[in-house]
């Protein structure tokens, strides 16, 4: 994988925020609200793979859904190639021609009552308006791209294994010839041997079609192996972002360090767990200041009061972390 590609930004997310719930009830009382994504600003460069890691509930899937327009942000803007995704001009078909999505669960993302041909033809018909002959051509191209025999086209989803179903999911995302594909945990539901197949196919497609990926996963080793840049999310915010090598070799945020230390690896004898009595923050009642403070061994008074800003590391302007006391400075 090449190092971070310098170039133009394909997607610019500026201060995106998504709140679920909230508002007031009939008596004027506040309803509880969850801040799934808070103040996320990030750029996806053309041609790169941006990895997003984090644990369950950190907001990474919500961010992914915002990117493809399946959900609308409650604040901030998302611009795709300079156009506001939720602006007047951008309807969902126009966006879907440029951004596509690969789902985590390959089997449930395919309608059980449709053949693979019907599923793959849908974007060709509705997004590109291709005629019958063009569609047939494109279908065989797609099946070839994901390494599946064309005979599979007339089968139903339940006849496929997880790995094959995920390759069909990828083919569907490719069908509309998008610029960006958002991959939401694309290999988490697969066996390890199949996982490698799918990762290799994704890698090949990227260079063949000049794609840009946003790759979301909770598995650090998978993200490390595919990403040019990595963003670490915790509790709805980005706590660290930078080139993959920098983030994984020299993590600055204590949370990134904790993640890396906890990850099992073949040959690693003992994992270093944090103390068992640490409590995760309550999403309905977020703490002021840094959300990681309660679990952080380096926390001080200021961490409890103010949310730390994303600051670049000295000597590495592309490597930012949101911490008042980052590692590597003492």
């Amino acid at each position: 994988m090449p190092e971070a590609v310098a170039g133009e930004a394909l997607v610019e997310i500026d201060g995106a925020e998504r709140i679920f719930g909230g508002g007031r009830n009939i008596l004027g009382r506040r309803k509880p609200a969850v801040h799934a994504v808070q103040d996320v600003s990030i750029e996806v460069m053309k041609g790169e793979t941006l990895g997003i890691v984090g644990e369950s509930g950190c907001g990474k899937s919500t961010l992914a859904r915002l990117l493809v327009g399946l959900d609308a942000p409650t604040g901030g803007t998302i611009r795709f190639g300079g156009e506001d995704v939720f602006g007047e001009k951008m309807d969902h078909r126009r966006l879907a021609r440029r951004v596509q999505y690969v789902f985590q669960d390959p089997v449930s993302s395919l309608n059980p009552r449709k053949t693979i041909r019907t599923i793959l033809e849908a974007p060709l018909v509705h997004l590109l308006g291709k005629n019958r002959r063009e569609r047939a051509e494109r279908l065989s191209e797609l099946m070839d791209a994901v390494n599946l025999a064309p005979e599979f086209l007339d089968r139903y989803p339940h006849e496929f294994s997880g790995g094959q179903a995920q390759r069909i999911g990828i083919a569907r995302a490719l069908a509309a010839d998008p610029e960006l594909i958002v991959l939401d945990e694309p290999v988490s539901a697969l066996d390890v041997s199949v996982q490698a197949q799918v990762l290799n196919i994704l890698d090949g497609l990227k260079s063949r079609f000049g794609l840009t990926y946003v790759f979301i996963s909770h598995d650090l080793s998978v993200v490390e192996s595919v990403s040019d840049r990595v963003a670490v999310m915790y509790f709805g915010r980005i706590v660290e972002i930078g080139p993959g090598r920098g983030v994984f070799r020299a993590p600055r945020h204590p949370y990134t360090r904790l993640l890396l230390k906890s990850a099992p690896a073949p040959g690693r004898k003992s994992l270093i767990p944090e103390d068992a009595d640490t409590e995760l923050p309550d999403p309905y009642d977020p703490p002021p200041g840094c959300a990681f403070h309660a679990r952080c061994p380096r926390g001080t008074e200021i961490c409890m009061k103010e949310v730390p800003p994303l600051d670049p590391a000295p000597g590495a302007p592309a490597h930012l972390s949101a911490c008042y006391h980052p590692h590597g400075e003492d």
Partner: peptide, 26 residues
């Protein structure tokens, strides 16, 4: 709320199409 409905939306289908072609057969 199933993923294949989201997928159909990303394939460019309108609400009526999703309702009649994706949801109804199930």
């Amino acid at each position: 709320r199933r993923e294949f409905v989201d997928a159909a939306r990303l394939s460019g289908k309108s609400n009526v199409q999703i309702l009649l072609v994706e949801v109804l057969p199930n």
